[in-house]
Amino acid sequence: MTTVDRRLWLLLPAGLTLTVAFLLPVGWLLSRAFTFPQPGFQNFVLLWERPVYLRVMGNTLWISAIVTPITVLLAFPVAHLMAHGSPRLRRWLVFLVLVPFWTSLLVRSFATAILLQRHGVLNSFLIAFGFTEEPLPLLYNMAGLLAGCVQVLLPFVIFPLYSSMARIDPAYMRAASTLGATPVRAFLRVYLPLTLPGLMTGATLVFISTLGYYIIPALLGGARQQMIAQLIQDQIATFGNWGVAGALSLVLLAATAALLALLQFTVGLKEIAR
């Protein structure tokens, strides 16, 4: 017979709060998908039949699919330096990555907007140095959205990658070299595979986070980059259509759950919690 840890009641206060403030309202919203305006699956039929819904859901997946590899590619060298650089360099890198991480998402998105706008810092720089004559359109389009998402999500890849890389014994690369592996082959056959747990974790976090982004596409993206969270907001605030909003939320939740299940299947959540 297994005995229940009696200390579990310590979970009660937080559990109650979460139930009242999160589970019940979210459950209520999701349940609207099947009950509003009348019981049935009409909201899901609507999602399938109206091209705008499918387009936005496709948009959302597409944007996540672009943001993820860009973020991973940018994070990889940073994590590598963090893991194998001097302790002093590591402290600085951790600090530099964490400072923006602690800054409000809204502030950072507005800051990105200031940087990228038509007469913003970046465009002034590009014109001053003759890279372009006319200001480039960097805001309210895909470029702005990607810049906003990637800069916010970098830490989510850097830290899991760092924790994988820090566990790679430098002797592995020396051994590979004495065994006849060129640096490129040693990287591809030994180093890269050993970073996969961190890489998969980071990539999944980025993909899932991007799926649900609202502020960044609203502030930095254009009309053509509308994402699922914006659609949910529109349905509720503009049309009062709680049914479609619930159905969209359920689709988002299902996609997230499926991705987490895939991560558990490939890497294992145990590995991530380590």
Binding site: Y172, A175, A176, S177, L179
Partner: peptide, 30 residues
């Protein structure tokens, strides 16, 4: 010559076997 162009084999104190490869694939690596 870098290590990978020298005709040497090396055994390290802490083995340095590649943890993601089976014994056979480790030995087949070179």
């Amino acid at each position: 010559l870098p290590p990978y162009r020298r005709d040497i084999g090396m055994v390290f104190q802490h083995y340095a076997l590649f943890p993601h490869m089976t014994v056979r694939r480790n030995v087949a690596f070179p």
